[in-house]
Design a protein around this nucleic acid. Structure first.
Lengths: 160, 160
DNA sequence: ATTAATGCAAACGGTTTGCACTACT
DNA sequence: AGTAGTGCAAACCGTTTGCATTAAT
């Protein structure tokens, strides 16, 4: 089953946040106050964040934050394997923060909540696509939209 | 105008393309040359198309086509159940054309091809999300990204 | 001293909107 | 005649880029 997920080129050992400055410098890149700011916000993030959310949160800490810096930094961080992008239910770019485990996203389009899809939850999907179609699902890009249990239970009453 | 269409559930029986003018008129909406053009293009479409693709194809037939008209018409057609939108792998809005059966999309991010996911292919996914999480997957919004069989077979050599 | 990174402003692509005008019904 | 639909242009949002400037190495 492990090889179903293969080919994803994930960083095998995930260094800790504290190592990031060195990781950057080891590649001839630089550690700047702006990057520190961005990393701080990412570190405080529970699992995923959109580009514009990140810009927004950085701006709350430092109103001088510039979108271009944030997006450029995100691209660098993705190359380091610290974040990974996917596309959310609304089509916006979403960044998974240092995924402990690869995961996808589950959206309820009634209440708007979202959850992570972990490997256990995705396993039947991954297996069935592999078996039926020979298709290797990329879990980190998997976005499932529908209605969550709570919204189904609260059935009739609620409004979208 | 919005309130004429609002609150409409899904049409249970899918009428044919020829009925669309009457369907519109029955709701106090109008049949125009522009809409005919758009419908023509949609009718010639194999299954799904993005908004901008539709604009583009319409413009090939009539260079005067305006984006706003196309997008506005798409919204009306969605309310009629003739198209249905979802979000593609790149985050762009995608419209399923008169889905004979509800389906999702499968993208290979190596070769860029895409396929429909029919109910049979999605069934294990739908069932497992329902069972594990009580979550009702919306197949028409399901987008799975990964590597297709051909790209896996052609393994190392190929380039995206 | 190098050259990576920043900030700005401007441009992007896809989509939406306000408004005066046109044309279906 | 009435009002839905159009075309235009301008705005929108999230994101990207060019360029001169700043600052980490």
């Amino acid at each position: 089953m492990g090889d179903i997920l293969q080919g994803m080129a994930f960083p095998s050992a995930a260094p800790s946040w504290a190592d990031i400055p060195d990781q950057l410098r080891a590649r001839g890149l630089r550690w700047t106050p702006q990057r520190r700011q961005i990393i701080d916000v990412l570190e405080a993030t529970d699992g995923h964040i959109t580009g514009s959310e990140l810009v927004e949160r950085c701006r709350q800490l430092d109103p001088l934050t510039t979108p271009s810096t944030v997006y450029r930094t995100l691209r660098v961080l993705e190359e380091l394997g610290i974040v990974q992008h996917a596309h959310g239910a609304d089509g916006r770019e979403e960044f998974h923060v240092r995924p402990t485990s690869e995961h996808g996203h589950l959206y309820c389009h009634q209440c708007g909540s979202s959850w992570d899809i972990d490997l256990a939850d995705a396993e039947p999907t991954i297996t069935s696509f592999d078996r039926r179609l020979g298709f290797a699902v990329d879990l980190s890009h998997m976005t499932i939209v529908g209605r969550c249990r709570a919204c189904r239970d609260a059935n009739s009453g609620g409004r979208p």
